[in-house]
Amino acid sequence: MKFIPFYLIFTLLIFVQACGNKQVEENKTQREQVIAVHDEVMPKMGQLKSLEKAALQKAEELQNSETPDQAKIDELKNLASQLNLAYEGMFVWMRQYNTEDGEKTPEEVKVYLDEQLVLVSKVNEDIKAALAKAEVLLKD
């Protein structure tokens, strides 16, 4: 009879430990997803800056032409701004991203990683949208 509470407590501890390990594994997978979204567009950072310069150069050339097309000039300047914002967005995200869990519980880490996945996905989308727009406007 004395051993029943001991076994009950022991079983409960094992159950809690098993659940905690599952959450830790899920968090590891979630962190890998966050990094994968980041890694998909990180190699394109140099391309963003090159296209930004090309857009500004083309806008300047149009500005100095005999018949400047102000709408096209504005469109190119807006593109350059969008490319720059996409570039800066990646670095803003990277500066605030925390690779260490610290004193957070596995549940707190999950919430943090869910938020980070949303943020880095937005950065990813912004970069892809800026690159797609640049491809259209700078194709000639």
Rank of each mutant, 00 (worst) to 15 (best):
K2D: 11
F3I: 15
I4V: 07
I4P: 00
F6P: 03
I9L: 11
T11V: 08
L12K: 05
L13Y: 01
I14G: 10
F15A: 14
V16I: 14
V16G: 03
V16Q: 07
A18M: 09
C19Y: 08
G20K: 14
N21G: 01
N21F: 03
V24K: 06
E25T: 14
E25G: 04
E25V: 08
E26M: 09
N27K: 04
N27Q: 06
T29I: 06
Q30D: 02
R31S: 10
I35H: 02
M42W: 03
P43L: 12
Q47D: 13
L48F: 06
L51Q: 04
E52M: 14
K53G: 03
Q57N: 07
Q63W: 01
S65I: 12
T67G: 09
T67P: 05
P68A: 13
A71K: 11
I73E: 05
I73P: 01
N78C: 08
L83I: 13
L85M: 10
A86H: 01
Y87V: 06
F91K: 04
M94G: 10
M94V: 15
R95K: 15
Y97S: 04
Y97H: 07
N98E: 10
D101K: 04
E103K: 13
K104N: 12
P106L: 00
V111A: 15
V111E: 15
Y112C: 04
V120Q: 02
K122I: 13
K122M: 08
V123L: 08
A130L: 07
L131H: 04
A134I: 12
E135R: 13
V136S: 08
V136T: 11
K139A: 12
